[in-house]
Amino acid sequence: MFANKPLIQCALFLVLLCAVFSFATPYFLSLDNMMSILSAGAVIGLLAVGATFVIAAGGIDLSCAGVMALASVVTAYALKNMGVTNPAVAFLLAGLTGAFIGGLTGALINVTRAPSFIITLGMMSIARALALILAGGIPIYGLAENITALGQGRVFGMPAAVLFLLGGFVLAGYLLGFTRFGRHILAFGDSAMAAHATGIRTNLLKLKTFALAGFFSGIAGFVFMARTNSGDPSAGMGYELMAITAVILGGANLFGGRAHLLGTFMGVLCLGVLQNGLTLLAISTFYQVLFVGIVLLLSAFLRRFSARAS
């Protein structure tokens, strides 16, 4: 099937990377290390979930890391200074903060009719500035055990962060791949004209898409906060590009219409495996940066050749 071809490529790529590292270092192939790759990928992964929706709809979201930082600060602030103690309330607060900013982004895109690139570039600065202002420029450190347990602890032997990651992907995969809402997002990203002509309310759709992406960025902020035990206004500088890279590695069309969460998941794993493997091998950062670039280019070549072959 056409839609699954990039998925298979991404899977092969991932297997190849794992095989290389398994031979190169004895520390790579262990359950513990796999869990460590997954927990390290939780934050980028949740950001990539949001980015998948936006890219599926033919947009781009540069604000996700800023929104994540804001959500982490808002939540940490509420936990430290406003007497919030319930982890579920904190989780919702983070998600809703993200969804609110995301919804605002969607509304601004509808009102201005500007490309999402510009609006989210603006929102990136605004979200980060709000985070800096609220935190006074200083990370909010030192949270209660019941919160950090959600980022650092284990549930049924699984790191809690991994559960957030998997839960996010399952929910998002259901929404994008198996519901009317997801179908409409993909159709809109494919052809805005087709979506409008068939009576889909495209403005509402955009609003919902960005709010949902914002929600996942907010959840990423919650996991970040629980993992690092702090709300950090300068958290995740440059993560938005990592998230977009993962989505593209996963076989999505940058111009919309085709995106798959299983692909994004494998894209996140590719990046995580690469970083983990190179660190285990104690290879200098210069080369790590180089390898991420090479992997992305290689995936572009692969796709080009297989497109020609078919």
Binding site: T25, Y27, S30, D32, N33, S36, A40, V43, P139, F224, R227, T228, S230, D232, A235, G236, M237, Q275, N276, T279, L280, A282
Partner: peptide
């Protein structure tokens, strides 16, 4: 300069 990356590098290095 990143908190998460510091965490990740330390985790991976402790594995090795």
């Amino acid at each position: 300069w990143d908190r998460m990356k510091g965490m990740q590098i330390a985790t991976d290095t402790l594995t090795r």
